[in-house]
Amino acid sequence: MLQFLESKLYSDVEGTCSGQFGYIIAVVSILDIGKGMVLSGSGQAEFITRYRAIVFKPFKGEVVDGVVNNVNKLIHPDMKFDPNSNPPSFASDEQIIEKNTKVRLKIVGTRVDATEIFAIGTIKEDHLGVIE
């Protein structure tokens, strides 16, 4: 049964996302599997399990590195959008941003959805922008 509870925990929580904890990437260890409580009226039992996990949650004001996935036509006063380049890119005098470019950005806001967290970032500050 322990085995079952363990694999159930892994498959139920890994890869999920909540506003409270962010993304649960991987369970590292189980601290306490909990005492089972049989629910009245059904044959089911409920276990409250404590576990340790690696989670990811982006915070407003945090500086993070990332890889560009997609370039679209949002306006940045110092950079020009070039839809004809391949792949489409943003370019200013000193930097070019296109798919797979690594950038350092600051998160200015986050929005939590049931299954995803959206974040808006800026590169318009010192020490932010294309890296390497």
Binding site: Y10, S11, E14, G15, T16, C17, Y23, I24, I25, A26, V28, I54, F56, D65, V67, K102
Partner: peptide, 29 residues
């Protein structure tokens, strides 16, 4: 450290989008 933990996990890697993206990310950064 996340990279180390994910690469040295004794369980099989879960095949979730979140896990795979994280692994890519930590290898990159």
């Amino acid at each position: 450290e996340v990279k180390y933990l994910l690469e040295n996990r004794d369980k099989d890697a879960p095949d979730t989008a979140v896990y795979n993206k994280t692994l890519d990310y930590v290898k990159n950064f």
